[in-house]
Design a protein around this nucleic acid. Sequence first.
DNA 1: TAAAAAAGGTGACAAGTGTCATATTTCATC
DNA 2: GATGAAATATGACACTTGTCACCTTTTTTA
Lengths: 231, 231
Amino acid sequence: MDHPNRCENCIVRKFNSLRAMSKEELKAVSDSKVTKQVKKGEMIFDEGEKLNGVYCVRGGVSKLSKLSPNGKDQIVKLASKGEVLGQRSVIAEESSNLSATAINDMEVCFIPKEIIVSTLHKNPDFTYEVLRHMAHDLKEADDVIVNMSQKSVKQRIAEALLYMKTHFGEDKEGYLALVLSREDIANVVGTATESCIRILSEFRKEKLIRTTGKRMAILEERKLQDLVDGF
Amino acid sequence: MDHPNRCENCIVRKFNSLRAMSKEELKAVSDSKVTKQVKKGEMIFDEGEKLNGVYCVRGGVSKLSKLSPNGKDQIVKLASKGEVLGQRSVIAEESSNLSATAINDMEVCFIPKEIIVSTLHKNPDFTYEVLRHMAHDLKEADDVIVNMSQKSVKQRIAEALLYMKTHFGEDKEGYLALVLSREDIANVVGTATESCIRILSEFRKEKLIRTTGKRMAILEERKLQDLVDGF
DNA sequence: TAAAAAAGGTGACAAGTGTCATATTTCATC
DNA sequence: GATGAAATATGACACTTGTCACCTTTTTTA
C-alpha cells in the first residue's frame, strides 16, 4: 500500500484540508479518485457547469476566472499545488461560478463529491478545516475588491508582479517562475491588454523589471512596492 | 422560558447558521449573549481589532468596510437582519480585516467566541451550515470583483440602486427603504463622491430615479437593468 | 433660532484608461 | 528553417473618472 500515487502518501495533501481526513476516509478518497493530466490552455471546468467533484492540484497552475458581460475574462484567483478547485460549488450545491483553465501543464486529481460531502457530515475536524480555508479565501477576496476599486492600473500591475514573485518564486536566472501572458496579467488586474503592455514597457524603461520574451524578472522590488503603497 | 429576548425564540436566527444549533447549544448562547443598541454612525468593531465574539444583527443595517491606503473607505458588504458579523475572523483566528459601522440605528447581539468555536467542534451540522453561508459569501465576493473591474461607474451605481431595492425594499411612497448618503454609495461602488453625485443627478434628469433629500426612488427599473447589462 | 458643520451639487480641467489601427516580434507547426 | 498565427508593442484619440474649487442646501449643535 505504499504506492506513490495513493493520497495517503501524497505530499500535496499536507497543504490543504484533506490533511484533516482520517486514514479510512483518505483511503476511500484514494480508491475513487482519478488522476488527470491537463495540458496548458485546457479547461478543467467551465462557468455554470455542475461539478461532480473537486479537483486537487498536484502540479502546475490554474486560473479561476469569470466571463464578464462585455466579453472579458476576469481572473479571480491563481491556484497551484495543494489547492482544491470546485470546493465552493460542491459545498453550496450550486453550479460553478468560475471556470478553471490550466496556465501550464497540470496534474490534478478528481475526487467525487459524494466522498467529500459525506466526510463533511461525518468528520467535524475536516469540516472545520475546510471552513478555515474558505474563511481565508474570503479575506483574500475582500482584499482584491479593495485593490480593484481603490488602486490604479499601474499599482495593480506592480502588485501582481510582486504577488507572482512571492507565491510562485523565481528561477535560477531571476525570472519569475510563473510565466503569464500579457493578456492574463491584464485579466488578473482587470484592465485592457494594451494598457498592461504599455505599463510593463514603462516599467522596463524605468529598469524596474527586465523581460526576455514573455519571461519577466523583477529588478527593483523595493520601488515596485513603494509604487503599490502610493510612494 | 418564553421570554422574547431569548435566542430560542428569536426569529432572526431562522436566517442564519444558528438555526443548526441544538436546543442546549442555543440556550448556552442565549445565557451568555449581550444585546446592544448601536446608534447610527457608531462603529461596532474596527479593522485590525481582535474580536472576542460575533455580532448577530437583530435590526438595522451595517456596512462592512476596509480603509484603503489612499484614505478611502471601501464598503465590501451591507449586512442586515439575520446576518452574523465577525464570523470569518473568529473562525480564522485572525484580527478583523474589515470594520463594521451602523448605517442606521441597530440592535445586535454579541456572542462570545468560545461558544461559537466549541459548537463548531462539537456540532458538525452547525459547522456545515456556517460553511455553506461562507461559500455563499465567497461567491458574492467573486461577483463583486468582476463588477468592480469590468463595469463602469455608471453601471455600478445603477446596480447598487437595484441591489438596494431587492435586498432592502421600498416604503409606501416607493422610496428605497435603505437610505444611504451619496458618500456611502460612492464607497460601495468604489468611486469619488462627486462622481457618484453627478451620475445620480444624471439619472434624475433622465427620469430613471427621483429624489427627495437623501431619499431615493427607482422609476425605471428596466432601464437601469439594461444599463447594468450594457444596453 | 442662529450659527456651524455636514452633505449635496456643479463646473472646469487634468490625468488615467480603453479602443482602434497597425507594426513588429515571438512562437508553434509542418 | 519557412510560414502563418498569436502575442507583443506603440501611437493617436476619445471617453471616463478624479481632483479642486466653490456654492447651495440640509442637518446638527449650541
